[in-house]
């Protein structure tokens, strides 16, 4: 198995509770998830200020509690066309290098999911996106694809590109 799902796999081997809380996110048609342990706050109707000449994945700057946060646009990251005319939601994510923002179409409910439903990344996932994903949870109606909070950190993305 590749290195991508390491975070969750190692956690599951340790004495981590069997049930994890995941914030579910809608990006395009897909359902994605981010462990709530990494989320500081969810801000609705964010209007990030664009930064000319910034790398493609940067969604702009937002003002968050006195700091200026760099945001990552999830649509750009996953290679989706930009969302025209609709307000987006902003997740403030706590990364290893400080906080950053993640711009998504909309934030949905927080789900409690069981470790038993977890599967690591299948080998057929596109190489480019594989690095950003950390496996998936098999929900009843749909797959919830987990985003890897370490990998979507703007600094890490800048290093990778």
């Amino acid at each position: 198995m590749s290195t991508a799902p390491r975070a969750i796999l190692t956690q599951s081997r340790d004495a981590v509770p069997e049930v994890v809380e995941v914030c579910s996110i809608r990006i395009g048609d897909g359902l994605y998830g981010l462990p709530i342990s990494h989320i500081l706050e969810i801000v609705g109707g964010a209007k990030p200020e664009t930064v000319p000449l910034a790398p493609d994945f940067v969604g702009g700057l937002v003002h968050y509690r006195g700091d200026v946060l760099t945001t990552v646009n999830a649509r750009k990251l996953l290679g989706l066309p930009p969302l025209e005319g609709k307000a987006s939601d902003l997740l403030v994510v706590e990364g290893t290098n400080g906080c950053f923002g993640l711009i998504v179409d909309s934030v949905r409910e927080v789900l409690k999911v069981s470790r038993e439903d977890f599967e690591p990344n299948p080998s057929t996932v596109h190489e480019r996106t594989k690095g950003l994903l950390a496996g998936a949870y098999k929900l009843k109606e749909k797959l919830m694809v987990m985003l890897d909070p370490q990998r979507i950190d703007p600094l890490e993305l800048a290093k990778a590109s």
Binding site: A54, L61, V68, T70, P154, L155, A158
Partner: peptide, 11 residues
């Protein structure tokens, strides 16, 4: 003045 993240400072 608020500092920028390294990614944007690099511009």
């Amino acid at each position: 003045v608020k500092p920028l993240s390294a990614v944007l400072k690099d511009i």
